[in-house]
């Protein structure tokens, strides 16, 4: 198990190198001149622009700047926001808890819906329960998350007043407030993932329930809960993990929209603002953070795979 973990960690190094390259050069070739923006836009004089360019280090050769960029990554110095002058690292650190809370919330919602739904659908294929689950999940996949978010706000915040419509409360300040603020955005973000995971779990479960070892488990008299929750689930969940990993990536993108709708001060809203401002250092920082989340997710998925499927541990 440790060997598996070590190998996966090593494999993620080249991935991260490639990400830094892409992030750095993509922004390099993007239109718009950040030096001009920093100097005050179209109205700025050529001298002001040149001065801003020097101040930001944009006059140095490309490779030198890439090297500085990598050096910065290791020392935690990701530069400063061109706009506010705030260090990128602290800007991101401020907002990461919000986005991670939202993603964790969305995943929790997804699993809480998908696991029972998938099992119910798989144990009674063709039944009314199965059809209802499949229909709703088809809807969940098709419905864009911002629409779900707006509907949730309309019903649960504006009509019923159970949850706040917008805003965020840090966990340290009030755990209850934090939870309340996250419920609606988590549901809005998690429903699509729930639908996708439920469909995969159903298919995987149907396959597993046909296996001989399930018949053996039933013949042992250990009860239907153990047969489904233990013997079937551990086998059925491995293929679902792949989908779960993919869903995390989709969720990262989803946070951008959801954070806008619910006015959450997370990475998503930071990114949107940075893109409009052509705030390159911030965009780079966010992109690399997102890449890190994806890499860590992939490692977790692989380790979980090894736990679920003992044959993979030796491989």
């Amino acid at each position: 198990m440790l060997r598996l973990l070590a190998r996966r960690l090593l494999m993620s190094v080249p991935i991260l190198v490639i990400v830094t390259l892409v992030v750095f050069f993509l922004l390099e070739i993007a239109p718009g001149d950040p030096a001009r923006r920093a100097a005050g836009g179209e109205m700025a004089s050529a001298a002001d622009v040149a001065e801003a360019r020097r101040r930001l280090g944009l006059d140095e050769p490309l490779w030198t700047r890439y090297w500085h960029f990598i050096e910065g990554l290791f020392t935690g110095d990701l530069g400063q926001s061109i706009f506010s002058g705030q260090p990128v690292l602290s800007a991101i650190a401020e907002r990461v808890p919000v986005s991670l809370s939202l993603m964790a919330g969305a995943l929790t919602v997804a699993m809480l819906i998908a696991v029972p739904a998938g099992i119910i659908a798989a144990t009674r294929p063709g039944s009314i329960a199965d059809r209802v689950v499949m229909l709703i999940s088809a809807g969940g996949v098709a419905m864009p998350n911002f629409l779900i978010g707006l509907l949730l706000v309309l019903v649960f915040a504006l009509q019923l007043g159970i949850f706040p419509a917008t805003g965020y409360v840090p966990f340290e300040q009030s755990p209850a407030g934090w939870f309340q603020a996250l419920v609606l955005p988590s549901v809005a973000l998690g429903v699509a993932a729930a639908a996708e995971i439920a469909r995969f779990l159903r298919a995987s479960m149907l396959d597993v329930l046909d296996q001989d070892y399930i018949r053996t488990a039933r013949a042992k008299g250990i009860g239907v809960r153990s047969v489904l929750g233990k013997h079937a689930m551990k086998n059925a969940f491995a293929p679902v993990l792949t989908v779960l990993g993919l869903q995390v990536r989709i969720l990262i993108g989803g946070t951008v929209v959801i954070e806008q709708i619910f006015n959450l001060p997370g990475l998503g809203s930071l990114t949107v603002k940075a893109v409009f401002d052509r705030d390159y250092p911030i965009i780079q920082g966010v992109a690399i953070s997102a890449a890190l989340v994806v890499v860590v997710t992939n490692i977790l998925v692989d380790v979980a795979y090894g736990y679920l499927n003992p044959k993979l541990r030796a491989a």
Partner: peptide, 15 residues
């Protein structure tokens, strides 16, 4: 108790 015909597939591979 039951013993089944396929020993290769009648045991759960995950436990």
């Amino acid at each position: 108790a039951m013993i089944f015909q396929e020993p290769m597939t009648s045991l759960n591979p995950a436990f």
